[in-house]
Design a protein around this nucleic acid. Sequence first.
DNA 1: TCGCTCATCTGGTATAGACCAGTTTGACGA
DNA 2: TCGTCAAACTGGTCTATACCAGATGAGCGA
Lengths: 242, 242
Amino acid sequence: MQQQAFAEGTLPLYLRVRDQLAGQIDKGVLTPNTRLPSERILAEQFGTTRVTTRLALAQLEAEGKIYRSNRRGWFVSPPRLIYKPTHDYSFSDNVAAQGRVPETETLDVTATEANAWLATKTGLAVGDPVIWLRRRRQIDGRPVLVENIYLNATRLPGIETYDFNRSLWKLLREQYGVELKGKRIEMYPTALVDPQASAIGVTAGTAGLYVTRCSQDGQGGFIEFDEEFWLHDALSIQVEVS
Amino acid sequence: MQQQAFAEGTLPLYLRVRDQLAGQIDKGVLTPNTRLPSERILAEQFGTTRVTTRLALAQLEAEGKIYRSNRRGWFVSPPRLIYKPTHDYSFSDNVAAQGRVPETETLDVTATEANAWLATKTGLAVGDPVIWLRRRRQIDGRPVLVENIYLNATRLPGIETYDFNRSLWKLLREQYGVELKGKRIEMYPTALVDPQASAIGVTAGTAGLYVTRCSQDGQGGFIEFDEEFWLHDALSIQVEVS
DNA sequence: TCGCTCATCTGGTATAGACCAGTTTGACGA
DNA sequence: TCGTCAAACTGGTCTATACCAGATGAGCGA
């Protein structure tokens, strides 16, 4: 069982494979959403095994250059969506403005009550009525996030009867005259685990970005708390302050 | 070569190993910065191989629950630092305020000129003089970020002569009377690659968060452009707007 | 033409073992 | 007592192979 010689400038083999593939992506030989050759074929091409090839692929995935679709293959990542969480705008409008095709699916709508965790996040009391909304959102047919939205049911009576497959922000403004003002946003990178991972259709452990957003109206009253689980390679966040 | 039976509720073995370790961390059996048993010992304890054990460890690493120190072992991650990039404050003060011990090292100070990339980011013209500063910052002895800072040399004459192992923000205020006002922040998750990975002392491919921050003074003049490479498990970002 | 079935392709999970290259530690000698 | 140095230990990289399970598409039958 011969061993790697660490030839060619001491770079490990899996990083040399990575560099080859990254070069093809950067040079445009492989374009966004193209499928890469299968792991077995790549392994043969590079004269190595699937295990090492997968190391290289995992590296590129961590960098956000490629993504995987469960048991279908590896694909070149499209550009990141520019996302400004401090703005009030519609996901759909934002995606469309960047030349992409958005899609929103409502997974679940449930009337429930605030638990301790939600209470500390929102300022509600434990037991206050909330509407819990779960949605999945896609860009160009690829699911990029799932979200849990908790709406102040007292402040927004009857909201559970509306169609949620559209902009929530517009719904609040048009039906309730609510303009979201204050926001408290928190985010950090983490891995997606079930149930979010399977809702997006990725394996548990895929890198993600966890974003929460607590919005109030002009008077400081709590309106909605949004908890988003993004694929890590799907977005670039921008914030401007003056 | 017998195969896994997918027993015990169909969870794959590496996720069951993950759950066991995660449980010990959540219950406080393993406390922050404690070293885990070695991969070989864990593999033996769980009746599996190193490869599978490493899968479980990589999963926990992706979730930000553990981190590795090169060839020294795996350690339990401490709590994330709360970081408000829209605020003007000192890294050192912020870390200390959260009961941790900060440290800053200046790696490099170079007088150079704005290239095309920096020009588009800052509004400078290509060729304008800038001071390029590289720093590494630690929390409780663990390097958590490296940064490239580009300072407007025209606006801040002689700044390269100061000590940079302290708060840059205070330096600007005290020596130049500059209050940073406008900020444009951009960030996205990605993997750390060299030279940043080796500067922090992690292997290439470790998950990170890339943050850039462009700051101006009250009159909209460009002051500094900051490019930060964070370990992904080291921080939680908070932004508030009204 | 349309729907279904099944072979085939894909990645997902797992075993067993090997050598490489820094880190740590403990025994030993000055 | 203290420094040195080698052994032992750690993760890092790699080979070779196997079976599992979901996705896909070709082909067949209604």
